[in-house]
Design a protein around this nucleic acid. Structure first.
Lengths: 150, 150
DNA sequence: GCCGAGGTTTACGTTAACGTAAAGTGCTTG
DNA sequence: CAAGCACTTTACGTTAACGTAAACCTCGGC
């Protein structure tokens, strides 16, 4: 939770205006600062479904975006199962029946509520940090005047 | 991650203006919607240190606040170890030497950066949810006009 | 005096999310 | 063609954060 996750810069895109770039698992891993193992694990959990050229995996933009969203969800404390729940329904949307769609809306509302609570938590936590920090600074200052002023 | 955690209401406080209330482990557990096991575990991990009356634990306001902050930290994705790190230093502040204090400030800055990133994540995630939701509503609407209009 | 509700310790079980190691495949490069 | 590098599968290991079960006190009430 203390890593400086370099959230998926758009790749330099050497010349070609857009698209058609593909990635190996290693490239993608470096891009998001995760291990290949993690990416394979996410696939196994149904969060990714890359193309296969023979035995090796080939990732397109679509897959990269998926991974990006997945990692973002993770940072927000969603479990892989929760993320998959949304991803799957999103994929099944075209042929989605009404029941499924309503269920999806429910889930989304739930996630939204979650985000709201987190926002409030962040606000509160921010104040706590301010408080602890100011106390720490005070003590630190008093320590210094002590050793200086005597 | 989908539980409606009823964030520690101030207890009704029957008459007495403040303080001096104590809690059993069960009361505290109900208050925060966790199990006693969880609370004992947090103690074992050095996050709580309740008074002991003989064998049984007695919790004061201080302990309740600790627990509240701990749970808030958890919802924000901090590990118990990270939370303990701050809690311990906070306790040790009076006699804190300069090195410890500077270290504490570092940790706080780190947590702060974390919160910033989470805020950004929340903003982005919010848009994604909006997007998915509007698509879902569109499909749903088209389904209904379909079955109605024919 | 016993009973049930709540407290206690001890210890093994469980789940999620990967890590790690072994053993094999496939290209390309000196 | 051998070496090396990146990919692959399979499978067992690990860590955090509790759950669960057993076996025990202890206290107020009937």
């Amino acid at each position: 939770m203390s890593k400086r996750t370099a959230d998926a810069m758009e790749p330099p895109n050497g010349g070609l205006t857009r698209q058609r770039r593909t990635y190996t698992i290693g490239e993608l891993a470096r891009l998001f600062e995760v291990t290949p193992r993690t990416i394979r694990f996410y696939e196994q959990e149904g969060l990714l479904a890359p193309e296969r050229r023979g035995q090796t995996r080939i990732y397109h933009e679509k897959d990269r975006v998926r991974l990006k969203l997945t990692l973002r969800g993770k940072r927000l404390g969603f479990s892989l199962a929760e993320i998959r729940e949304v991803v799957e329904m999103y994929d099944a949307m075209p042929d989605g029946n009404a029941r499924q769609l309503k269920r999806l809306l429910e889930i989304l509302a739930d996630k939204r509520a979650n985000l709201e609570r987190q926002l409030e938590d962040i606000r509160l936590m921010h104040r706590e940090l301010d408080d602890v920090e100011s106390r720490a600074r005070d003590v630190l200052a008093s320590l210094e005047t002590e050793s200086t002023g005597s």
